[in-house]
Amino acid sequence: MHLSEKDVRAIATYARIGLTKAEVVSMTVDLNNIIESLKPITEYELDGVEPTFHPIADLSNVMREDVILSGLDPKTALENAPSHRDSAFKIPPILGGGDN
């Protein structure tokens, strides 16, 4: 499978990474090289082999008691935010124009 620059631009859009034209060119080369090196995974005889999505076999889901525990207070939670107002994160417009 060979990725084109158009494919790479689509992948970048999906990953929310704004690549420049030059970066798309070099990324296309890099990704194709890496994907080529992954080829063995496509050539294994794997019929009937169950996948293992997690290394520890007998883990089961853990539920805790439904009680309120303390978490970050809003002031602390906002301290690393690049932009905030009152007790909310502030972002650019998502519906076009107007007040943030």
Partner: peptide, 29 residues
């Protein structure tokens, strides 16, 4: 960025079946 892009591609529809699922089967082996 390279690894994010690679992961983004490998999890996309049609590619998942070719790489990700077999990788987890190989994990079993």
């Amino acid at each position: 960025i390279r690894r994010i892009m690679l992961g983004s591609y490998l999890l996309s529809s049609g590619v998942y079946e070719r790489y990700y699922y077999p990788a987890q089967q190989v994990r079993t082996l």
